[in-house]
Design a protein around this nucleic acid. Structure first.
Lengths: 233, 233
DNA sequence: GGTGGGCGTTAGGGATCCGTGAGGATGGGC
DNA sequence: GCCCATCCTCACGGATCCCTAACGCCCACC
């Protein structure tokens, strides 16, 4: 699990990094708001730990910028204790608000709570069936349901690249729903590539080649011309 | 949205009920832990507001009991400020922990944050019925309510083009109201095409062909001669 | 009875979008 | 340093969609 820590206080940044790393989290650090937005898009963190009191780009702007294209959990740190700022941050899209100084074990517990809340959604679709394939998102494995083939050849398990997994994840999370090009591009390649539709054509084709029974006649990854794509289990 | 408030303090219970009701929430009250577990199962609340300091059944046991079968958001209230109890409650399955005394606007903001995280997925399913068709604007799907046809043929789900969706969206947003040509044209094709009534004739005809039982005798997409069109569900 | 305007319908051209293949660029492992 | 997997760029048929133009039909009006 990857956590993006955005804090301009180098000392606190370092303390958080050490503590989180010792708990098994992978830590990505951002020193200001602009860098936080950049890394939230490029590093694909599972959670954002955000200090509101950063110079230049306001922490509140970071919340709004990230919420414009992602639902990742955002946990806010702040030295301000007045409820007005808490309300503003929470309504802007933050999931939790911790005031400094804080107890480290409480912060860790709140991180676990957020991770559990989002991870629970994915565990719904722990294994999803696509035709005769069984996809396990958590384990990142794809196996063939029919263990033996008619011609006796053992069915090779399908392998996907990291980008292909991120794209497939978006499809599996929204079965039956239309996914616009912008939504898919923002979630997989980051909001700065929302216009590069060429990526999508390429990687959807690769998913079809690897997962569709007949890639030239897709039955699960359907294209909606002019809008985007749709996944049908 | 229904909230289950579990608190043995009658005064606080009453204050919460009044405040939450004034914000449009439906409130169900429980006076002790056993009742809280009972109502969490029977009243189908969307969120549980739980005071840890209740007699007899410990609040922590309520969390574990509810978490054994439900993922509903649990927001804990407590007078204890030590981090040990916070960690225990959060790890048992609570989603948030607020210490008394608390600011009411902060509590409401935290409730909104939890509701947003979970309820957002359900509120997407805003579906509208047109005859025997079910339209989901967010998912961009149109399915037939009667799953099986008399002649056994599987009813193919209707597909719409982007422009047809934009036009249909205008109709669904204003059921029963007269929509002038200018209004429809400027909303769908932009204000520069407010005089191209030919577009409307074409696309209304296509909507009728795809959505009306008898396209030549429309019952849902009615034309108001000289003015515009009207949608009747 | 003729005429004109509003509305519905059909067919076809042009522009955009999509699928596919090949090839270069980058980064990590041996 | 070399190899390999992955990611991205580019170009070219083909499918889809949007728009234009033309033709019937109905009704109001002269």
């Amino acid at each position: 699990m990857r956590i993006l820590v955005a804090d301009d206080d180098a000392q606190l940044q370092r303390a958080l990094r050490i503590t989180l790393a010792s708990r098994g989290y992978e830590v990505v650090s951002a020193g200001d708001g602009a860098e936080a937005i950049e890394l939230a898009a490029s590093a694909h963190p599972d959670l954002l730990l955000l200090d509101l009191g950063m110079p230049q780009v306001d922490g509140m702007d970071v919340i709004r910028a990230v919420r414009a294209w992602s639902r990742m959990p955002i946990l806010v740190l702040s030295g301000r204790t007045d409820s007005a700022e808490k309300v503003e941050a929470l309504d802007a899209g933050a999931d939790d608000y911790v005031t400094k100084p804080f107890a480290m074990d409480e912060l860790l517990a709140r991180i676990r709570a957020r991770a559990r809340a989002t991870g629970a959604d994915e565990s719904d679709a722990a294994t999803v069936a696509i035709g005769d394939l069984v996809v396990d998102l958590a384990a990142r494995t794809i196996r063939r349901a029919t263990s033996t083939n008619a011609d006796g050849s053992a069915a090779a398990s399908v392998r996907l690249t990291p980008t292909e997994w991120r794209l497939l994840e978006q499809f599996l999370k929204n079965p039956g729903k239309l996914l616009t090009r912008q939504m898919l591009l923002s979630e997989v390649w980051g909001p700065y590539h929302a216009n590069d539709a060429g990526y999508l054509r390429l990687y959807v084709a690769q998913l079809r080649r690897k997962l569709e029974p007949i890639p030239s006649e897709p039955t699960h990854f359907l294209t909606e011309p002019g809008m985007g794509y749709r996944f049908e289990p």
